[in-house]
Design a binder for these strands. Sequence first.
DNA 1: CGCCACCTTGAAAAATAATTACATTTGACG
DNA 2: CGTCAAATGTAATTATTTTTCAAGGTGGCG
Lengths: 280, 280
Amino acid sequence: MNTLEKITKNLDTFSKSERKVAEVIIASPQTAIHSSIAALAKLADVSEPTVNRFCRRLDTKGFPDFKLHLAQSLANGTPYVNRHVDEDDGPEAYTSKIFESSMACLEAAKNSLDPHAVNRAVDILTQAKKISFFGLGASASVAQDALNKFFRFNVPVSSFNDVVMMRMSCIVSTEDDVIVLISHTGRTKAMVDIANLARQNDSTVIGITKKESPLAAECSLVLSMDVPEDTDVYMPMASRIAQMSLIDVLATGFTLRRGEKFRENLRKVKQSLKDSRIEK
Amino acid sequence: MNTLEKITKNLDTFSKSERKVAEVIIASPQTAIHSSIAALAKLADVSEPTVNRFCRRLDTKGFPDFKLHLAQSLANGTPYVNRHVDEDDGPEAYTSKIFESSMACLEAAKNSLDPHAVNRAVDILTQAKKISFFGLGASASVAQDALNKFFRFNVPVSSFNDVVMMRMSCIVSTEDDVIVLISHTGRTKAMVDIANLARQNDSTVIGITKKESPLAAECSLVLSMDVPEDTDVYMPMASRIAQMSLIDVLATGFTLRRGEKFRENLRKVKQSLKDSRIEK
DNA sequence: CGCCACCTTGAAAAATAATTACATTTGACG
DNA sequence: CGTCAAATGTAATTATTTTTCAAGGTGGCG
């Protein structure tokens, strides 16, 4: 655990003098790590052995070891946490918070994603005769983004955000087709129906959704990510960022599986954009 | 800069003995920070002053100070860097790399974004009679996502990924309209034309694009982010994640500006989704 | 209330670690 | 082959940390 947090948490288990040391350190950890035990003792108005005992109480070998731990916890500094935007935040504050929440979300997503599932998903996608990406509402843009990636692979890809089109597409799907359904909650009725429909035609259904959700139950393979809920803002935010990164991962896995020759393809697609651009 | 990287980078500026020290530290930084100068000197098979000189060469006050710096850089663990995917990466490796690159990109984006520009953009958006989000290719999904956010605000919003529709929309735009153009490179001819067209009607044009690009030159306000280029993969990846987060920021700024009463609106929109969902 | 046991604290000594000063080695170059 | 400067090491010095031990509190209990 983070050393600084540990000090704060255990404040009441310390003796009087030790608490003085703790307070000085909490007040200015940067000073603490750059001071000798003598200097710190003086700052806290206690004796040097007291500081040493304080360090040992925090499961360190002594003062230098304690400084090391403290330094690490400062560097680490709980890097990105999901912080909620306050009513009176200025532009700088809410900008930072949103970006940091997105980063925290990606971190959580990365850690909760199962690499085996990713690998199987890539397997399935590389063998697909046709790939469809479906998403509704906020997930529609993720599906569209996936289309933008995968069409470069010279595989038939489609993406709809129209439920009727999705149904029609599923009705004519075959066992060689793969359908990727994107839904944050996994509780959208229409999506569950689509999954069911596709399965009836023996198509493979990959769900980018919450595990143990109704949608997940209908999928051949579930790619789930535990991301912190964006509770107090009434819009899905961070979850989509994670979904989109997952699409990036799948696309990357796809290209890797296809080897060097295939990448020539991508180069050509990129090249084709040139004419639509203004030269430097 | 990260101390460990610094050691690696400056390997050739060290003398023979100092390099021995560097190698021992690189091989096992964890051992290094938990050793005394004597122990480390022995490991590297050099004398103690050599270790000390090595530390000073890296702009530290001495050995203990060096250990502190090293400890911090280890804790930090080169937090998120844009790492390129290798040919022979397994699913675990490329998944981590993609997510970490996205995080590195968000970090860079956050730091390069100008809060004043964000604030002005929010100003402009809150005063708009009509808002349009336009993007082509990879940016189309960002535009669609923006639509999904802003339609909740009870402002007329539109989003096209069809150049002709964009043009028509711009032709009939007025000075109270705001057009948000999303383009990573800022060099897409069609987008530059659109910006020009909109400006002719005195509409306000906000560009989410690269600064000093042809598109940026045509915009009333530019929101630029310096994100690391995704060079060796032939698809835009991280840049879109940053753009999407920026949309989140703008949407958040918008709701904050409108105050509590307005948020009731958002609650209703969220509520309306309920019937399309399966209850827990 | 007072005594004892125990805990807390600090002074000083001892031990450990880091730095400095200086000597020796090494190697480049005339 | 000698000279000089840079690099390295030895040993002494200094700084820093840790230990030991004694003094001062604190609270329990007769």
